[in-house]
Design a protein around this nucleic acid. Structure first.
Lengths: 204, 204
DNA sequence: CGACTTCTGGATTGATTATTTCAGAAGTCC
DNA sequence: GGACTTCTGAAATAATCAATCCAGAAGTCG
């Protein structure tokens, strides 16, 4: 892109990745510009604002980067090639594995980094809330598909099952942040899938 | 009980209650002293520090107050008069009802108000983390009791079931904060209890 | 009344917050 | 080489943060 002018002396993508880890760990408001600039290689304020515009703009950028990389574990929810039950189970299991890995902060950035904040942080809050809403709807769509495809009984409590799996999905994040082992969370998912199976049509 | 000296001209208990609502809504770090002092009836900085010592000390006090009032919904977990299954179910249902009520902030103060924060907020973070750990252990004890009392099969995955119910309990908070209806969460609990039932001994 | 204790109003502290300004450095393009 | 563009280093901005200080007000107690 920028072909002319003085080139910046830091790697922008690397800087975004570093910032992502900080926002993921400490949240949007819990991360300071000093922290960010230091992690990006002690760049100056001028460099920061020239490259990213503002703290919130950078936050949004890191969120996009998160969704593109670590956050993609939930794309299984929309994978039409999979049967509905597998969509839910895979999204949950992959989330659990990712969120308890040690190479990065635990828990999910969407669930944790801007859920609670001061009155001023409302606009950052809205971005993650929208993301969670989209997941909630995708989960509901999986359950609904289970009924429509004749896998679940017609009298299945669609909203109840959906809320269960979404509750577990967001709950994962706090558990992971609290240090609960990935193995335990994975076992919880196995148990949660029994609720689905309880609504299955009898397999003659 | 301060018997002598000039009496303070605001109600300390009322002030703590007001502060609790703010911390509950905006989190420990998301709530400013100006906000707190204003909500407490525009008291001065001097009055604030004379009465509460520091922001963190007040936060801890509001947390105790929360546990004594709204937070007591989870005491069912330790109620030995109830069968283990009911302990879990009641704690979950009461939490869902409380956390989606409109008279106060949604979600749980223990789960939300200090889960994520800056490096400096670690000590406040630790208080709520300890509380969540205690709940996690109480939930595990319920499941274990189910096995020991012969209600659940001996081969029951205790850790898995426990992680499921704890995941749902903390997940509730984010769902409630996202505006998910209490009715939906309650239905999710109904579905979650099917995992318990799936591990029950056959009732001949 | 007078000694004592506690709280309040108001100003102020110093640290930290995100952001801006500007002159000069370091490139590209013609 | 000179015009042009973009980025950097350093300093400064105003706002907000939690917390402190002090003189005086408002009580209790003997």
């Amino acid at each position: 892109m920028a072909r002319t002018g003085r080139p910046r002396n830091f790697d922008r993508d690397e800087a975004v990745a570093k910032a992502m880890h900080l926002f993921w760990q400490y949240g949007y408001e819990g991360t300071s510009l000093e922290q960010l600039r230091h992690a990006m290689g002690d760049i100056s304020s001028a460099s920061f604002y020239a490259a990213f515009g503002s703290k919130e703009a950078l936050y949004r950028e890191t969120l996009v980067e998160y969704l593109r990389t670590h956050g993609k574990v939930v794309t299984a929810l929309r994978d039409e090639h999979l049967p509905p039950r597998d969509r839910l189970e895979q999204a949950l299991r992959r989330s659990a594995a990712m969120q308890t890995a040690s190479a990065h902060p635990t828990g999910c950035m969407v669930a944790l980094s801007a859920t609670i904040c001061s009155e001023g942080g409302a606009s950052a809050q809205a971005v993650t809330a929208a993301e969670r809403k989209a997941n909630r709807e995708a989960i509901a769509a999986c359950v609904k598909a289970g009924v429509e495809e004749g896998i679940l009984r017609p009298d299945t409590d669609v909203a109840g099952l959906a809320a269960l799996y979404e509750g577990l999905l967001v709950g994962l994040s706090i558990q992971a942040r609290d240090g609960v082992a990935g193995k335990s969370i994975d076992a919880a998912i196995t148990q949660a899938m029994k609720a689905w199976d309880a609504s299955c049509k009898a397999t003659s």
